[in-house]
Amino acid sequence: MINTYNESNLHATLKKIYALESNGRMEVQLDDTPWICDILDEDGNAIEIQTSNLSALTEKVQYILETGRKVKIVHPVAESKWIELYGRDGSLIYKKKSPKKATIFDSLRGMTQICPLFLHKNCTLEVLYCQITEMRRQTENPAQTQNLARRHLKNWLPLGKRLEKITKKEIYSKKDDWSKLIPETLRKNEDGSFPFFRKVDFEREIKKTWGSKNARWSGLLIWILVKMEILEITETKGRSKIYELKVES
């Protein structure tokens, strides 16, 4: 197949699942472009599996939408993760549970460019909460990854991720879906009016609703929701901005 030489086990597994579900064809060249679509379903619409930076799909998704096709972006996040470390001879050294639990908040940094496209009438983001196993190969000396992403070298290299189970699915296709990331206390007052709030209020309510780990992404979530025209800045007081849920006219 085209373009599968650098494909992870997780990506390949999800691609097969969605191709079967949609009766689609895998690895299809998009018209006369250099882009390869993960799946074209039986109606000619696109399904893209993106395991990391969602903004890497921006130009491709923009093109797909301009052709009139629908596009579904499938994005797995590791709700729970096991780590398997293998020796250089291929033997399993250990398997252990990672304490890290990812949510959609951990993916926000990769959405900054593509986020306005998520509200296009033909675009859907499907977030899959998964149990995965991350496989690693031990190295003799501290090593850099192929994409030079490591700030600190480690004594192992990644071998890929394996899907164990899909536990939950969240669909984001309209403003109401994204608005649910805003704590309920900041979406509407008891009298039905919309509350005004500052970043510090938003962070406090995110911490109460989604936990302190996700609260660190509060500022970025506000920035994205403003860019998507879900929140609006109603006033600026000194260094503080006042926000409100944007009312559709």
Rank of each mutant, 00 (worst) to 15 (best):
N6D: 09
H11E: 10
A12F: 02
T13E: 06
T13F: 00
L14E: 01
Y18G: 07
A19N: 03
S22N: 11
N23G: 15
N23F: 08
G24E: 00
G24N: 02
R25D: 06
M26T: 12
P34H: 12
P34C: 05
C37M: 11
D41W: 01
D43N: 12
G44F: 04
E48C: 01
I49C: 06
N53M: 05
N53I: 04
L54S: 04
S55W: 08
T58Q: 12
T58R: 12
T58E: 09
K60W: 02
V61M: 08
Q62I: 01
Q62C: 07
Y63H: 13
I64M: 11
I64T: 10
I64H: 07
L65Y: 05
E66P: 00
K72W: 00
V77F: 15
K81M: 11
I83S: 12
L85R: 15
Y86F: 15
G87C: 04
S91P: 02
L92S: 09
L92R: 13
I93Y: 15
I93A: 09
Y94H: 13
K95A: 07
K96T: 06
S98D: 14
S98N: 15
P99I: 00
A102C: 07
T103C: 06
F105R: 11
S107M: 08
L108D: 08
R109I: 07
M111Y: 08
T112Y: 13
T112Q: 10
C115A: 12
P116M: 03
L117G: 11
F118E: 09
F118R: 11
L119F: 05
H120F: 01
K121G: 05
N122W: 02
T124Q: 14
L125K: 10
E126W: 00
E126D: 08
E126Q: 13
I132N: 13
T133H: 10
T133W: 00
T133D: 08
M135Q: 09
M135K: 15
R136S: 07
N141V: 09
P142N: 13
Q144G: 12
T145E: 10
T145Y: 04
Q146L: 09
N147M: 05
L148W: 06
L153T: 01
W156D: 06
W156L: 09
L157P: 00
L157K: 03
G160D: 02
R162C: 02
L163H: 04
I166P: 08
T167G: 13
K168I: 00
K169Q: 11
E170K: 10
S173Q: 15
W178M: 03
S179A: 12
K180A: 03
L181M: 13
P183S: 05
E184R: 14
T185C: 10
E190M: 13
E190W: 15
G192P: 07
R198W: 02
K199D: 01
E203Y: 01
E203A: 14
K208A: 13
K213W: 03
N214I: 03
A215G: 03
R216L: 07
L220P: 11
L225K: 08
V226Q: 08
K227I: 01
E229H: 14
E235I: 00
K237Y: 03
G238W: 07
R239G: 06
I242G: 13
I242H: 14
K246E: 05
V247T: 14
S249F: 02
